[in-house]
Design a protein around this nucleic acid. Structure first.
Length: 545
RNA sequence: GCUCUCGUAGCUCAAAUGGAUAGAGCAACAGACUUCUAAUCUGUAGGUUAUAGGUUCGAGUCCUAUCGAGAGCGCCA
């Protein structure tokens, strides 16, 4: 809370006088008259010096000019009424208000597509959440690097190569369409036929040993695949700072294993190496044939990133992989690889209408590009006259907003018809409110330096203004918990309140200039806030609908 | 079998990390358009937060048990 920071500091200092050391939190108040409340004092009802604490607290609040009035309830809840015109400084400088004091250096590891496989529904949440967290962290001034972390190594790749060798398919002429068909075929063959499985395992070992011929095949596959992935990413509005993959750290692994062995951090277990930790299950670091696993490359990736001095490493990955990340983080700590803050930003599955998760590995899943095209039909159904760039933006809005409106940990049902609806908590709804506001503003001659005419603000205006005041709280929540849904929900709330105000009065034809100014000022702040929220979510605002 | 996650309105989801009277959206019902785009708005109804205990000033949130659902569980990623 940018403008309330000094009072929070003073209150914390004051509490120290009574040997109470804690953070004072400004929270949202449910009551009409008051916008914020402080709950820290409730728990000290029976403190022997409670009267002195409250008295000194009241004195501090009274001296703060941004607070118009306040009340202390019988249980020592403290409610604050904010001076609207004083708070306008925040409205006008919201981008400055959300900046953090201590900037962090963060890497966001998300996306994680496999080569040979198109981006599909299973990648949607990682991409959406990752992009949003990227934007949020950028906005507060953190240094952020995104890495798509390609699955371009290991068994799946070995399976494809093996399949192509067995079926004598030309590596030089392979197209993305053929490759995408081969992926599920080779995967099921691997599971069902022992002979094929053996040959794929051999290929995998050769891959790890940098066998020239296999590497040559591999690099052709990778080129074809990356091209296709990049195309889809661009259409969906995603960009990455780094397109590194598992293959980029492969060369670090032999040395890593050797050094771990020397330090006795890993032990031989039936030919495989496991971490010398007392865990159940044991943490397998390499296979018994010496080849590498998911965790092996992930550990090497940590080593590879070490010199960038990241404070925080965020992995935006499906929650079903939490055991893997648990093991990974344990190993990083035990091996002494990096003392940065590692976090698994887990998310739930997207289910179909029957409640079953979309399958990811067996093939037959809907491609993201097809989903995008399908969504475009829904958008065109709303308005046939829209130009193509606008339709694209709106289709992406639908696919982003519907995904980010739900708490990331929750599984949710994917229902495109519902998500592309014009009313309800949808991306279309929030875009529409913003378009209305922008058009209105363009028609007016608002001078932005004006203050509100406080006595002439009506209930609809006040609802919006008070809601604007909550921006920093929701933003902080989204940032601290890596949870974009707070912002999506808040964006809907603002849009809904704006539509309500817009509807209740013909603003530009209002005879009272002061009322008109009030409403235009509110409109202008709404445009700023809505645009900023969309940016945080990875949604691109449109001008026409 | 072991481990983890979850159970909130008919349906889909929230709930500021323990705060005051649990909120939205769909669907349902009743209203408002010669419009700054009704692509909207206004209102009504809908709950013993799975169940039973416990912790404290205060519990959807923490602890225990039971019931129910899902996920994961060394040579896939």
């Amino acid at each position: 809370m940018y403008q309330l920071k000094s009072i929070v500091n003073k209150l914390e200092e004051n509490l120290k006088e009574f040997n109470i050391f804690e953070n004072v939190d400004i929270k949202i108040c449910n009551e009409q008259k008051y916008q914020f409340q402080i709950n820290n004092f409730v728990k000290y009802q029976k403190h022997e010096q409670i009267n002195d604490i409250i008295t000194s607290t009241i004195k501090i609040i009274e001296e703060t000019d941004i607070i118009n009035s306040f009340e202390v309830s019988d249980k020592n809840f403290i409610n604050l009424e904010i001076n609207i015109n004083k708070f306008q400084y925040t409205f006008k400088n919201i981008r400055k208000a959300i900046m953090v004091e201590n900037q962090k250096n963060i890497i966001l590891d998300y996306g994680g597509p496999n080569i040979g496989k198109p981006l599909h529904v299973g990648h949607l949440r990682s991409l959406n959440i990752g992009r949003s967290l990227y934007n949020i962290n950028k906005l507060v001034g953190n240094k952020v690097t995104s890495d798509i972390h390609l699955g371009d190594w290991g068994m799946p790749v070995a399976q494809i190569i093996s399949y192509m060798i067995v079926h004598k398919i030309d590596f030089e002429k392979i197209t993305i369409d053929e490759l995408e068909k081969i992926y599920p075929l080779s995967s099921s063959l691997y599971n069902d036929h022992d002979e094929f499985k053996e040959s794929a395992l051999k290929i995998n070992k050769k891959l790890n040993e940098n066998d020239k011929e296999i590497i040559d095949h591999w690099s052709r596959l990778k080129n074809v695949s990356i091209k296709a992935i990049n195309q889809t990413l661009e259409i969906l509005g995603h960009k990455f700072d780094l397109i590194l993959g598992e293959s980029d750290v492969n060369y670090l692994i032999p040395e890593m294993i050797e050094s771990l062995l020397k330090k006795k951090k890993i032990t031989n277990d039936n030919g495989a190496y496991v971490a010398s930790l007392n865990t159940d299950p044991k943490i397998l670091i390499t296979k018994s044939d010496g080849s590498y696993l998911y965790i092996t490359t992930d550990l090497a990736t940590v080593i590879n990133r070490k010199d960038k001095n990241f404070d925080t490493v965020l992995y935006v990955v499906d929650k079903r992989q939490s055991l893997h990340f648990n093991q990974l983080f344990k190993c990083i700590d035990y091996f002494g690889f990096d003392d940065a803050n590692f976090e698994h930003i887990a998310f739930g599955t997207i289910n179909d209408s029957m409640g079953n998760p979309f399958k990811t590995r067996e093939g037959g899943t809907k491609k993201l590009i097809d989903l995008f095209k399908e969504t475009k039909y829904y958008v065109k159904d709303i308005n046939k006259n829209l130009d193509d760039p606008t339709v694209n933006k709106l289709a992406n809005t639908i696919l982003t907003f519907s995904d980010l409106i739900t708490n990331r940990k929750t599984d949710y049902k994917f229902d495109l018809e519902k998500f592309s609806n014009i009313s309800g908590k949808t991306g279309i709804y929030v875009q529409y409110a913003l378009v209305r506001a922008k058009k209105l503003l363009n028609k007016s001659n608002l001078k932005l330096e004006k203050d509100f005419y406080i006595t002439k603000l009506d209930e609809k205006d006040l609802n919006l203004i008070y809601s604007f005041m909550k921006f920093e709280i929701y933003f902080e929540q989204a940032l601290n918990n890596s949870e974009p849904h707070h912002l999506a929900d808040y964006l809907y709330e603002l849009s809904n309140l704006y539509n309500s105000m817009y509807q209740s009065d013909n603003i530009l034809e209002n005879n009272d200039q002061e009322i008109m100014t009030n409403k235009l000022l509110v409109t202008s702040y709404f445009v700023d806030y809505s645009t900023l929220l969309m940016e945080s979510l990875g949604i691109f605002p449109v001008d026409e609908m």
